[in-house]
Amino acid sequence: MASNPADAAGTPRDGRSRVSVLGEAVLVLAAGLVFGWLANAVSPRGLQWTRNYFPLAKVEAEAPRPAEDRPASQDPGALEAEAVSRVQARGFTAWTFARVADAFEDPRRLTGQVIWVDARPEAQYRRGHIPGARPLDPYRPEQQLLELLAACLRADQVIVYCSGGRCEDAELAATLLQEAGVPRERLVIYVGGFHEWVEKGQPVETSTPDSASAGTSSFP
């Protein structure tokens, strides 16, 4: 351990020392990239370099028009209109809360003719989801898609949701299901998503399809 008598100001002494520091930065960058490549390869959460995680067509959403007395950020109607417009532009059917609430009361939900798909990350799904919904994380769909596909192919209607608002994960999941063979006309996106569902005080389930202990609660 020593003090730094480099120079009075403690700054580089000449151009060559700057080059040395620059070379050091380049070395660190190169080593860091190799480190990142290796860490990503061994991490169970690692990403695939070449996969297109967003296979959705780019939609130029119409800018949300704010209500006269409040900005768009506080206007749920504007946000919902934006989401409906985006979902329809991608060729999917968009449902708002009223339609979804009716569908939830539909007895076909219990016979598997209407399937609910939760496209949020699995951790969020485990913390709570719409009762009976099956998980399908569109970023890691492999296993879940296999488990879900047969049921979706048999169903008359598949309702997909994510967090709601500007979340596009429901559209991603619907695209995956469509590519796997589920007819587009059977796929419906609930644009309000899970946040709206909870805000409306609807029941929430914390169990998973394969777990025995079901827990359903109604959020205030």
Binding site: L29, G32, L33, F35, G36, W37, A39, N40, G46, L47, W49
Partner: peptide, 8 residues
């Protein structure tokens, strides 16, 4: 992939 691990 690169940025988080580079930060680490």
């Amino acid at each position: 992939i690169a940025v988080p691990w580079l930060e680490v």
